[in-house]
Amino acid sequence: MIKLFSLKQQKKDGEAAPRAGNQKKASAAQLRITKDIHELNLPKTCIVDFPDPDDLLNFKLIIYPDEGFYRGGRFTFSFKVGQMYPHEPPKVKCETPVYHPNIDLEGNVCLNILREDWKPVLTINSIIYGLQYLFLEPNPEDPLNKEAAEVLQNNRRLFEQNVQKAMRGGYVGSVYFDRCLK
């Protein structure tokens, strides 16, 4: 039986028990993300970039699709991992303007595991594979960019042309896209 308090054990302000220096400890989120990042197993079309190697909670993912509509493009995503990770998913935004049914012009991404289907057993690796899949198989059923989704559904050929136009840098309808071919 654990007895926690002996009656003599009275704590006073400033009276430090064995001091561990003033080091802080890594938070649960930091410990977990260290593991996630260290064990990334990236497809060959993806690279990750850490502007600050000491800060594993904020980084960029660059996807270079090598097949599908978006072949030859270069798409950058920003990842912001909060202190609630992995209880809450990271915040992911697409920083490259892209003509895509599941990514809107503000860079919001509609990927189930980034919101409603997130589970703590998933990892950064799962999200990266999910994002890569969006470029291989854009999904017109769950649109964020409704116009792009309609074009994809009704006229695949036109969709392909629009994607090419956008990636080369130019207007699709009234929207201008920056060049993002690598």
Binding site: D104, V109, C110, N112, R115, E116, P143, L144
Partner: peptide, 9 residues
């Protein structure tokens, strides 16, 4: 949380 596409469309 709600799917973003539901919110949007």
């Amino acid at each position: 949380t709600y799917p973003l596409c539901t919110l949007a469309n």
